[in-house]
């Protein structure tokens, strides 16, 4: 097969090539991050990848046009050159589709599963989540490749990494630590104080925001401090959060009210204020004495 044919082939199968390359590069990159000496089994993601590769029909190249792979023995002498889709940049990989298509609302069970998954990564609602994958222990720059607030995001194992939900802060590991140790591969030693449980029961993640009435926009049931970018969690393609059913609307707090009490804003001030026992009724019934509305007429019709 001529190199030209290879290029043509890739040209006509741009999409599957991109995905295949994404898979390859992601595997390479995750391998790099995991470090050479690690013996822990982080197979969840790779297993997903393999499944995708073998089951997804669109990933299967049409028969008869498969370029022959170069044997290991010939690798040293083979002449490689980048095809048109080759990229050395993570940011050029297949990225999340963030077009604002209508999304079906989550079912109750999906919501529950998402909330439980969220809770497993946080000590309490408002705590910085721990990182559910191995991390580069020394530098934060690798975090930004996938979690930056802007720019394309590679889809990894069908999941879109969460965008930074807060203002840009460059020392990620100050607040976000790995959930599974430092991963130097100690597996057969019982070390540390591993067995001591905690009785800390943090604020649980609110299931749903209150609504003033059915169909009213729910109020935001959590603090939005450090979560100013709602789309980080609620955008399409995100897991472990309620995805918005109306991603085309960008000004979230226009309709969804925030709660000062939830965030403890101005609590010094709040302490000074006397609690109001009843909500203020903006449309109070007129006092009975001056109520001119007569009883319904004989036909039972109200007076206009």
């Amino acid at each position: 097969m001529l190199p030209k044919d290879v290029e043509n082939y890739f040209d006509t199968h741009r999409r599957s090539t991109a995905i295949a390359l994404a898979i390859l590069l992601v595997t390479v990159i995750s391998g790099f991050f995991m470090g050479m000496g690690q013996t822990r089994n982080f197979s969840d993601q790779t297993r997903d990848l393999r499944d995708r590769q073998s089951t997804s029909a669109e990933n299967q190249p049409p028969s008869g046009k498969i370029p022959t792979a170069i044997g290991y023995g010939d690798l040293a002498t083979a002449t490689f050159r980048p095809n048109t889709n080759w990229s050395s940049s993570l940011n050029d990989l297949a990225t999340a589709d963030e077009s604002y298509l209508p999304v079906a609302a989550m079912t109750k069970n999906e919501r529950r599963a998402a909330i439980l998954a969220r809770e497993s990564l946080r000590a309490f609602d408002g705590a910085p989540p721990v990182v559910p994958h191995p991390i580069d222990q020394i530098s934060s720059s690798s975090c930004m490749n996938c979690h930056s607030a802007t720019g394309p995001q590679p889809v990894i194992a069908g999941r879109t990494p969460a965008r930074m939900s807060h203002t840009f802060l460059s020392n990620c590991t100050q607040c976000h630590v790995a959930s599974s140790g430092h991963g130097e591969g100690v597996t057969d030693w019982k070390l540390g104080l591993g067995s001591i449980e905690t009785r800390f029961a943090g604020l649980s993640i609110a299931a749903a925001g209150d609504r003033a009435y059915p169909e009213a926009p729910p109020v935001i049931p959590h603090t939005i401090r450090m979560r100013e970018n709602c789309y980080s969690c609620h955008g399409s393609g995100r897991v472990n959060a309620l995805t918005t059913s109306h991603p085309e609307r960008q000004n979230c707090t226009q309709c969804h009210a925030i709660s000062a009490a939830k965030e403890g804003r101005d609590f010094d001030l709040l302490r000074l204020r006397k609690p109001v026992r009843f909500p203020i009724d903006l449309n109070p019934p007129p006092p009975p004495a001056s109520d001119p509305t007569p009883e319904p007429d004989t036909k039972g019709n109200p007076k206009p």
Binding site: G35, A123, G181, H182
Partner: peptide, 28 residues
Amino acid sequence: IPELRDAMPHTYVEMNPKDARELNLANG
């Protein structure tokens, strides 16, 4: 605190990889 303990469950000796190689020590 589970979140902190899980991130750093025990102590370790941090070495230069070249020293480790010379002493035939791998990670872990």
